[in-house]
Simulated assay, not measured.
Amino acid sequence: MEGMNGADAATAGALGEFLRSRRARLTPEDAGIRSYGARRVPGLRREELAQLAGVSATYYTRLEQGQSGNASEAVIDAIARALNLEEDERTHLHDLARPVRTKRRRPARPEAARAGTVRLINAMAEVPAVVMGRRSEILAWNRLGHALLAGHHDFDAPSRPLERPNLTRMLFLDAHTRELYTRWDEEAARAVASLRLIAGRYRDDRELAELVGELTLKSDDFASLWAGHPVHNCLSGVKQFHHPEVGDLELGFEVLHLPDDTGHRILTYTSIPGSPSDAALRLLAGHPWATTTPQEPISASRNAASSKTRADLP
Results as ranks from 00 to 15, higher is better:
M1E: 01
E2L: 13
M4I: 08
A7I: 02
L19D: 09
R25T: 12
L26V: 15
L26W: 04
T27G: 00
T27K: 10
D30H: 14
D30G: 14
I33M: 00
S35N: 12
Y36L: 07
G43Q: 09
G43H: 07
E47T: 07
E47G: 05
L49F: 09
A50G: 00
S56A: 11
S56M: 07
S56T: 12
Y60N: 06
R62P: 08
Q65Y: 07
Q65C: 05
G66A: 07
Q67K: 15
Q67G: 01
G69Q: 07
S72Q: 01
A78L: 00
R81M: 05
L85R: 08
E87Q: 14
E89I: 00
L96T: 02
A97F: 03
R98I: 01
R101I: 02
T102P: 02
R106Q: 12
A108W: 15
R109W: 03
R109E: 14
A115K: 05
N122C: 02
A125W: 12
V127S: 09
V127I: 14
M132I: 05
R134T: 10
R134S: 11
E137I: 06
N142R: 08
R143D: 02
G145I: 03
H146E: 06
A147Q: 04
G151N: 05
H152I: 08
H152Y: 09
H153P: 03
A157S: 15
A157W: 10
P158I: 14
P158A: 15
P161N: 07
P161A: 01
L162R: 06
L162E: 14
R164E: 12
P165I: 04
L171G: 03
L173Q: 05
E179S: 13
T182G: 09
T182Q: 13
R183E: 15
D185N: 13
A189P: 09
A189T: 08
A193T: 07
A193H: 01
L195F: 03
L197C: 04
I198E: 09
Y202K: 07
D204L: 11
D205M: 10
A209K: 00
V212G: 06
F222L: 11
A227C: 09
G228C: 10
V238I: 14
G247R: 04
F253Y: 13
P259Y: 11
H264T: 10
R265V: 13
T270D: 01
T270C: 02
P273K: 13
P276C: 05
S277G: 08
D278Y: 01
D278M: 04
A285V: 07
G286W: 01
P288D: 00
W289P: 06
T291M: 12
Q295G: 12
P297D: 12
I298T: 13
I298P: 01
I298F: 12
S301C: 11
N303V: 12
A305L: 13
A305W: 04
S306W: 14
K308L: 13
